[in-house]
Amino acid sequence: MAKKRNKLVMPFLKWVGGKRQLINEIEPLIPTKISTYYEPFVGGGAVFLNRQPKKAIINDYNAELINVYETIRDNVELLIEELSKHKNEAEYFYSIRALDRQEGFDALSSVKRASRVIYLNKTCFNGLYRVNSSGEFNTPFGRYKNPNIINETVLRAVSNYLNESNITFMSGDFEEALKGARKGSFVYLDPPYDPVSKSSNYTGYTEGGFDREEQLRLREVCRRLDSKGIKFLLSNSATPFIKDLYQDYEIIEVGASRSINSVASKRGEVSEVLVRNYE
């Protein structure tokens, strides 16, 4: 009998392209029997934390993000204590934001670095994790009255889940993260999306971006997974380019509201696709 999921295990960060609003479309498509769950672009982890697999390989190119997951698992009480020291003030915000531009940043403890990411995420404009081409966090201060910087209940619930389960965290290339996948595994892929228009090209949560060459490389990885009999489910934007790339598989079009555009009138419902290679 499957272990009951804990509803308090949920995303602790707001992330670009987060899947919370599409969980009801995605969840029924995930196979019930999975030996190992793989998610090579975990981001805010909405699908992973909703599914709560007992065994998983979780990866993201963003090393600071993966450090947050590992710190929640290994040092949640120290993290909560560190988060309580932060102030919701512009001058303080910019001093914390600037740390990754200064010497000694790499010497900061994993707890201080994780605390910094959560604090900036909760207090920055639009709760948007964004880095420049040098990998430096560059979102401005959000001016919220009472941001929920410390959600102790959720952090402890996620920590308990990670400690009770066999979860391996990696920070690197998606292809590397999938090398151990075997038949019986399941792979959920949520890469940076193919831009709907030139102005909407949002790949700023890791340095280096994710262009169409990368989308083509990802499609080749999907073909290899398929040839090994490994089930995958992929999310992306419903552009002609993506629909053409995955025409050999089942494509389900869904709507998701998006709020990362700086122009309010351009936020709202956008079409996305869910691609799968199984019934």
Results as ranks from 00 to 15, higher is better:
residue 225 L to C: 13
residue 221 V to C: 10
residue 242 I to Y: 01
residue 226 D to P: 06
residue 234 L to W: 02
residue 224 R to M: 14
residue 216 L to Q: 09
residue 219 R to E: 08
residue 228 K to A: 14
residue 248 D to Q: 12
residue 238 A to K: 03
residue 253 E to Q: 14
residue 241 F to R: 04
residue 248 D to V: 06
residue 248 D to R: 03
residue 241 F to M: 13
residue 225 L to E: 04
residue 223 R to T: 13
residue 232 F to Q: 01
residue 242 I to W: 01
residue 249 Y to A: 14
residue 230 I to T: 08
residue 249 Y to I: 09
residue 238 A to D: 11
residue 237 S to H: 01
residue 243 K to Y: 13
residue 235 S to C: 11
residue 252 I to C: 10
residue 216 L to D: 09
residue 239 T to M: 03
residue 234 L to P: 03
residue 236 N to I: 05
residue 223 R to A: 15
residue 251 I to A: 11
residue 216 L to F: 00
residue 222 C to W: 02
residue 219 R to N: 07
residue 218 L to R: 09
residue 233 L to V: 02
residue 221 V to K: 00
residue 228 K to L: 07
residue 242 I to R: 01
residue 248 D to W: 12
residue 232 F to A: 06
residue 249 Y to K: 09
residue 252 I to Y: 11
residue 248 D to Y: 12
residue 252 I to R: 06
residue 231 K to E: 08
residue 249 Y to W: 06
residue 221 V to A: 10
residue 230 I to C: 00
residue 254 V to N: 04
residue 220 E to F: 02
residue 217 R to V: 01
residue 226 D to I: 04
residue 242 I to F: 04
residue 250 E to H: 13
residue 254 V to T: 04
residue 222 C to F: 03
residue 252 I to D: 08
residue 222 C to S: 08
residue 239 T to A: 08
residue 254 V to A: 00
residue 221 V to P: 03
residue 249 Y to P: 05
residue 254 V to L: 03
residue 251 I to G: 03
residue 220 E to L: 05
residue 227 S to H: 09
residue 216 L to C: 11
residue 231 K to Q: 10
residue 246 Y to M: 12
residue 229 G to S: 07
residue 228 K to E: 06
residue 251 I to R: 08
residue 230 I to A: 04
residue 227 S to T: 07
residue 250 E to T: 15
residue 242 I to A: 12
residue 251 I to H: 06
residue 249 Y to Q: 09
residue 239 T to F: 05
residue 226 D to S: 14
residue 237 S to G: 14
residue 221 V to E: 07
residue 235 S to L: 00
residue 226 D to F: 10
residue 253 E to C: 13
residue 231 K to W: 04
residue 231 K to G: 06
residue 232 F to K: 06
residue 247 Q to N: 14
residue 254 V to H: 00
residue 227 S to L: 07
residue 243 K to M: 13
residue 239 T to Y: 02
residue 246 Y to D: 07
residue 250 E to A: 14
residue 226 D to E: 07
residue 249 Y to R: 05
residue 232 F to H: 07
residue 254 V to E: 04
residue 217 R to F: 04
residue 243 K to Q: 15
residue 244 D to T: 12
residue 223 R to H: 12
residue 224 R to C: 13
residue 225 L to R: 00
residue 217 R to T: 07
residue 222 C to Q: 00
residue 246 Y to Q: 11
residue 236 N to K: 02
residue 248 D to L: 09
residue 239 T to W: 06
residue 221 V to G: 06
residue 250 E to K: 15
residue 219 R to M: 08
residue 238 A to T: 09
residue 217 R to N: 12
residue 241 F to W: 10
residue 240 P to H: 13
residue 247 Q to S: 15
residue 240 P to C: 11
residue 252 I to L: 14
residue 254 V to K: 05
residue 231 K to F: 09
residue 246 Y to W: 10
residue 232 F to I: 12
residue 244 D to L: 06
residue 233 L to F: 01
residue 240 P to N: 13
residue 250 E to G: 11
residue 246 Y to K: 11
residue 248 D to I: 00
residue 220 E to M: 06
residue 218 L to C: 08
residue 242 I to D: 04
residue 227 S to Q: 13
residue 234 L to V: 08
residue 236 N to Q: 13
residue 254 V to G: 05
residue 227 S to I: 00
residue 217 R to M: 05
residue 220 E to I: 02
residue 240 P to R: 14
residue 243 K to H: 12
residue 217 R to H: 11
residue 253 E to V: 15
residue 220 E to H: 00
residue 244 D to R: 02
residue 241 F to E: 04
